[in-house]
Design a protein around this nucleic acid. Structure first.
Lengths: 208, 208, 208, 208
DNA sequence: AATGAATGAGTATTCATTCAT
DNA sequence: AATGAATGAATACTCATTCAT
């Protein structure tokens, strides 16, 4: 795939993302995306085999970009609590920076369906996304920084955290204004005060 | 509006809810709903001015039903912690009992758009839903049962709780199996351990 | 299916047949058929689930009509030679009378394809159509009216006859003028002089 | 037209023929042909003014190739019966050897249309193709080898023979297996027994 | 009160052709 | 000589809505 071809695809993806973010998945027809990009419909079907491929690309790209943004920040941390806090903060920071990307992916994942009516991204979105959270929680238990949890309680906690984060995406989609950075800090405090072992003086790690 | 007319509308609403829950918002055309109900398309447009009105009715009805279910249970409680716990548990209990209703409303709220592309239920769903949670939290602060929170932290907490609850609706929509009752109990424990004032022996209220 | 519904379907089928006969299968889009009928495209998709169903109906109807026309005439005959002659003559008479029907079916059978690119009516059109010819030939052999043939020669003869008859359909499709009745008589004479046993005075049966 | 240009055109024609034979006329888009040839679409429109010109070339080339194959074989014969038999056998031999070529031409002739919907090759294919058969039949009448026929009967006979031969092309297109050589021999016997004058001992010419 | 029929705008996708490079 | 890119018209099909009966 040539450089220029790559550039064109990226450009179309960007317009698709913005169209979905603005109009929602259902209204984001190929025609609307083309109109947003100021090109003819044919251009899109020329560069992408199908609308599904376009949507797949958006989901894949945005997940990858999120991982590229979050991973180095998270891995820089040395304590479970630090990692937990940075997981939340970097996730929400990415959401704020790439607001329309996140909104688009949220729309796609919630709506794209296979021919038989099932959600296309139903499976993928759950376990693989939950996993990193669960790992941090388990590590915190092993080090003794976090309270001991039953397996079930641990899963509930992980799901709850993910829901709290994803809820921000929905609120961004609904165009509400939100102090995302402040939200992230308070959210970290909230969850940490629930999961940190209360021994002596429970203090989250220090950071600027 | 005659009694028989009311009955017919209710019947159509029920079929619409099931159709949306099964096929998703986008696939739930008037034709599909009519087929599910075993009636002709015309009947639906005869009883409802438009598809939008039908959707409005579903959202309104289900919210009202949830309120009818939750309110008496919540008001029976006498402590902030009890009320908080029952708020979560009764909400999730309703979700489990009326699973298809909740899935349908989730689908509608996430997808229904106005002509200019904005989410139809963007505004409504937020403040009015957040309010009862905020009230419980404030009351807990006044009684001294809950930690003191800044206004902002309190809002974040309320939003986080709502997101954790709504996340269950999405997981139910994605057809995943879930121990909803157990989830509710763990979720209450999780949040209470974050917001209860740690003085002496922090104990949630007793209940069977 | 109501009477009025049946009538509408028949009416649409008739317009579809004429459109295909005039423009060919490839050009006979739903839009063209609708234009020919003076109705909107939607009417056609309302009465027929798909274009394929419409095409199926045409093929089925025309084959049935041909059978209804030919069978009583053929069965009235009492000798193999008479039956053979009437088979050819009644077949071509039907073709001439229902020229556009035959042209349409010819177009459909030669062009309609399944998703994987294979001819949709490839199998059906061959054996079931060949069978009646083969039966007449076999009967003539048994009575001793026809020359003895090997099984293979008999099949070749049957295929050749069918091709000679179908060739008329193609010539009608190409809009050439043709004395079909005279053609039928000469064709019968030609084949009979090839297959009748030359013993004594080979004479086809008498008929006005 | 340069030698290299000629070679390129021939190469494209060959791929077009195979594409049409495999997928049928309607599915043989310029894109499909280009993909089959491993070149870009532009190459085809560069070497051929239009798709129509490409199709014209295929028809012309294949007809010419058939003539190049059949003519010397036919002209080697010295009797009308021999010529007649060799006409059929060499025609079918060419069909078998150049199966995809014949299938392609059959597809094109049956489907290619002018803008106003008429068959593009309706006229051309008939008279010029019928002529050689008619000539052989006339010669056989003049020598007294064949029965005397009316002009009309002679035309019917010629058309019937062509149809019997072309029918093989359609059966080859429908991917049915067929003993083409045996078919040719039986077909010649069938028609000769119809048209040879039955004087004394009618025997076709001898040949290995 | 209910329905079957019809409409017309909208959907993704295909394709022959044009054209700058 | 070749190509990748782009176009715009055409395709079958879906659907909310209207309306006469």
């Amino acid at each position: 795939m040539s450089f220029i071809e790559q550039a064109r695809r990226t450009q179309i993806l960007q317009h698709a993302i913005e169209t979905i973010a603005e109009l929602g998945y259902a209204q984001a027809s190929v025609g609307q995306i083309a109109k947003h990009a100021g090109i003819s419909k044919g251009v899109i079907t020329y560069h992408f085999a199908s609308k599904d491929e376009l949507m797949d690309q958006i989901v894949t790209e945005v997940y990858a970009a999120a991982a590229r943004f979050m991973e180095p920040r998270i891995e820089r941390e040395t304590t479970p609590a630090g990692m937990f806090r940075v997981y939340i903060e970097s996730n929400l920071a990415f959401m704020e920076a790439q607001r329309s990307h996140i909104v688009a992916v949220t729309e796609i994942v919630a709506n794209a369906r296979t021919e038989d009516g099932k959600l296309r991204y139903a499976g993928a979105s759950d376990e693989s996304i939950l996993e990193p959270v669960i790992e941090i929680l388990k590590w915190g238990q092993e080090t003794g920084d976090f309270k001991p949890f039953s397996d079930f309680a641990l899963r509930v906690t992980a799901m709850s955290i993910r829901s709290s984060i994803d809820g921000v995406a929905y609120r961004l989609a609904a165009a509400s204004s939100l102090d995302v950075r402040g939200f992230a800090q308070e959210l970290a405090v909230l969850y940490l005060s629930a999961i940190l072992k209360p021994s002596l003086e429970a203090k989250p790690d220090e950071k600027g």
